[in-house]
């Protein structure tokens, strides 16, 4: 009677199936254990709306207002926070319906210049499903040049990241939806706040100027060494330094701008923008 081939391991006869089973067990059990031990925290959330903007603009306040419907004091954030919200959080104040769409996630990111890479990386990583970006800014401090520069610089980086993502995705995929961006001019209840149209013009001219000086400026260290293509990518059209919201559309950057205020609860415009963003 022909038997299955057996091996001798450490003096014990072992048949092939047993050997295979035990080998499989050796391979699989750690994987299962690993899955169990890390308890599946790796699954990235779907349909994320990103909150970005300079610090002290009111990102965390907006998040908490949508979550808790009240004002909650906040301090400077140092880590991002992702919160799952029911779609009713976006329905305008008063009405309590619309249970049709699925819940979404809001990702709050720190606005400190050293921690802005969190928001940028969320956009650039094609694996993260970013449905829209809300760029929260403080419309009451845009009278000083330093704050304008800070606000614009971050916006420039975000727009560049959105453009880059669109460029990368549209190369491989034909039907790529661009990430829309809402410039939410917060704190319009304050006396010194600028109207949204004025902020819109201000940001466009500042972005244009920034693009110009970036083109004229020095190269970064290490440029051209290992052809990192993201170094020579410019925002918008390469031929002209002028940046307008319309001009950016063909590069996959769609921008809308709306005033509001978390403090006075005047955020219905932003809510409906987010809702439209999720429906798309």
């Amino acid at each position: 009677m022909s038997t299955l081939p057996t091996f001798e391991i450490l003096g014990f006869p072992v048949s092939l199936p047993i050997l295979i089973i035990s080998l499989l067990a050796v391979v699989i059990i750690p994987i299962i254990l690993g899955k169990l031990l890390t308890s599946g925290s790796k699954t990235g959330p779907s349909s994320v709306i990103l909150l970005a903007g300079p610090r002290d603009a009111g990102k965390t306040s907006l998040l908490l207002y949508l979550q808790e419907k009240t004002l909650i004091p906040t301090q400077t954030s140092t880590t991002p926070a992702i919160v799952k919200l029911p779609p009713s959080a976006l329905s305008p104040a008063g009405s309590e319906d619309d249970g049709s769409t699925k819940p979404f996630h809001l990702k709050d990111t720190p606005g400190h210049p050293k921690l802005r890479s969190t928001a940028i990386n969320t956009i650039i990583q094609p694996t993260e499903s970013c449905m829209g970006v809300v760029y929260v800014l403080d419309s009451a401090v845009l009278s000083t040049q330093a704050r304008i520069t800070d606000t614009t610089e971050y916006l420039y980086e975000l727009l560049l990241a959105i453009q880059k993502r669109y460029a990368v995705l549209s190369e491989s995929n034909t039907s790529t939806e661009p990430i829309p961006l809402l410039i939410a001019c917060n704190k319009n209840d304050l006396f010194t706040a600028l109207p949204s149209t004025k902020i819109s013009n201000l940001l466009q001219t500042e972005l244009s100027r920034m693009k110009e000086t970036k083109r004229k400026g020095l190269l970064g260290a290490g440029a051209g060494e290992n052809d990192d293509e993201d170094l020579d990518l410019v925002l918008g059209d390469e031929a002209s330094d002028q940046i307008t919201w319309e001009g950016l559309k063909e590069f996959g950057v769609e921008i809308s701008i709306q005033s509001g205020s978390v403090k006075s609860g005047n955020i219905d415009g932003w809510k409906s923008w987010m809702a439209a963003c999720l429906d798309a």
């Binding site: 909650i72 906040t74 301090q75 400077t76």
Partner: peptide, 23 residues
């Protein structure tokens, strides 16, 4: 660390910017 004030007790008014600059 995400910036939410969970609980606070103040005995005198202190500007929030004080703690912000610490952070």
């Amino acid at each position: 660390t995400s910036g939410v004030v969970l609980w606070s007790k103040s005995y005198a008014p202190v500007k929030p910017s004080i703690i912000n600059s610490l952070i």
